[in-house]
Amino acid sequence: MRKLVVILAFLLAMSLVLAGCGGPAAQKAEAPKYPTKAVEIIIPWDAGGATDVLFRALGNVFPKYADNQQLIVKNVPGGGAAIGYTEAMKYKGDGYGIVAAASPMVSKIHMSAVKFDINTFAPVILIADNPCMIMVHKDSPYKDLKELLADAKKRPGAVTVGNGGSGGGTHLAALAFEHFVGDVKFKHVPFQGGGPQITAVLGKHVDAVMVSAPEGVPQAHAGQLRILGVFGEKRLAKFPNVATAKEQGVDFKFTMWRGVLAPKDTPPAIVKQMHDIFKKTMEDAAFKARAEELSVDLKYLGVEDFGKFLKAEDEQYMNLIKKAKLGDRYK
């Protein structure tokens, strides 16, 4: 009796092995058809947040280039994005479960002891890259970055710069700016996100704020706030008169970016197809118009370049957080 069971099990195992061999061989002739069902993307932040809104806008256009398959947005916020990424680690690498990437993911990796790092996922595509910028009240004495820096040098630790949260992107941007310039010291005041930051500077409760679009854009448009400098490669399309930091003699860049990551074991062929779909989606006129409305600066980087970009960001954030002694990871 036992023998029979062993033989049956052996036969079953063999047939499975054969079936397993047959699969990839048969598919090799032709790239696997992808996608054949809806693709789920985890957004590790709340519904209505900037990343969520961007990916929902992508999702509206996605089916057009994905054989009419939907991009389903699943918000898994909490734990400073750690919960969402940990959840995404459970996805199989079949291309049907992916995760949104954004700068706070990298800072989280170095702030707290989390279960993932940048190598946990495979890069797919970079979609957006918004420069940080420093804004002041329209009545502020500072007209440009030089004046702000001069005053900050004169009165170390007296000029208050609001950020969107301790250890968050704009806080690190302000710290990085400080380190880059060298001999200045701001007083960093954390707020709960962009809205309260803008209100604080409008009410003159802080001297300046470090933000990234769309925060403050409407107020800057109305002339209530003034942008002192943009920490990006080029001037903002909406504010052609505002010089970049580089043009003002401070060659410093700091951006808030958004992209797509897939599970590490996703076959490269699927990653490639996924990349192509997202690339076409972000080039679609309807999506571009929506991005413009949302003040999102689109920037494309392919699989390899995005990977390199991620590594550089990882290093930058690690150094910053270690130096500023923030968070719990590097005590």
Partner: peptide, 9 residues
């Protein structure tokens, strides 16, 4: 979600 930014404008 609807693309309307609440704020002074």
């Amino acid at each position: 979600i609807q693309g309307v930014q609440p704020g002074p404008f």
